[in-house]
Design a protein around this nucleic acid. Sequence first.
DNA 1: TCTGATTACTAGATTATCTAGGTACTGTAC
DNA 2: GTACAGTACCTAGATAATCTAGTAATCAGA
Lengths: 147, 147
Amino acid sequence: MGLAEQLGEAMQAYQRAVDVLDQRAADLLGLNRTDMRCLELLFAPEPPSPGELAAAAGMTTGGVTTAIDRLERAGYATRERDSADRRRVTVRPTEAANRKIGAIYGPIVTDGQKFLRRYDDQTLAHILEFITHATQSCHEHAERLSR
Amino acid sequence: MGLAEQLGEAMQAYQRAVDVLDQRAADLLGLNRTDMRCLELLFAPEPPSPGELAAAAGMTTGGVTTAIDRLERAGYATRERDSADRRRVTVRPTEAANRKIGAIYGPIVTDGQKFLRRYDDQTLAHILEFITHATQSCHEHAERLSR
DNA sequence: TCTGATTACTAGATTATCTAGGTACTGTAC
DNA sequence: GTACAGTACCTAGATAATCTAGTAATCAGA
């Protein structure tokens, strides 16, 4: 089996591991997986509206409304009405959510950063390039599957 | 921002992208996310028992039983009773599940393999090493969070 | 051969999610 | 400015998923 093929399998194994970890994180936060997933999506570069969240999470807007209700009640998210278009709402993670998520995932990130010190800049650039490509690829294929 | 830090953010973005993709895949298979998650876990090196599946998926055995029922009914999994210990059951993905999952994720893997051709073996080895480490790290931290 | 532990399953209660429709707001055409 | 179509989010009731608690079958050790 070639290295590229091994890497394919490794990516799958990585996904399974992340999934188990996310479950533990959800347990700790007292959230079900759907709410956890919504919460993670709130950390995207632009905080989404409920509608965008519904599209990204593959839920109905009604379902998202109650999910946000739960996140808000648990203190992990806030709604903010858009002043320009008062129909629109922006959902943001709270500082508490930031902190708790940081406490859970932070050590893993730190671990990773430490591990990465063994590589030179060119190798790092290549890894970054690969992950970025994989991300782009996921977006494209998600798009493909939507049609 | 250093390369290692950028990579940290890239990994997060990657997770979000995978999540959206998984949702589309679940839609196509006609499964909810929990059942999809169980199905993915069936592709682990050793096909799990319902109990192991429950532990990995963070569900109760009762919940897993009905999830497997649905997967079986949909033709994606089969139960097989252990002949040595007749209390135990092994849950396996079916050929149909293999095929459908392949049809969905295969093109992405192919894409990735193609992209990887630009790297020499040493770089590939480093990327593989990084992903393997990240996987190991997830396992360890999931363990940490369980206590 | 008991006894206690383990494994998976079941029934009823709880919780989450969807469907369908409502309300509030926006922008456009008249 | 008024009516209208479109958009964004939310709500109520129905459906579906999940858990809690308890059961049956099997196993391993005294």
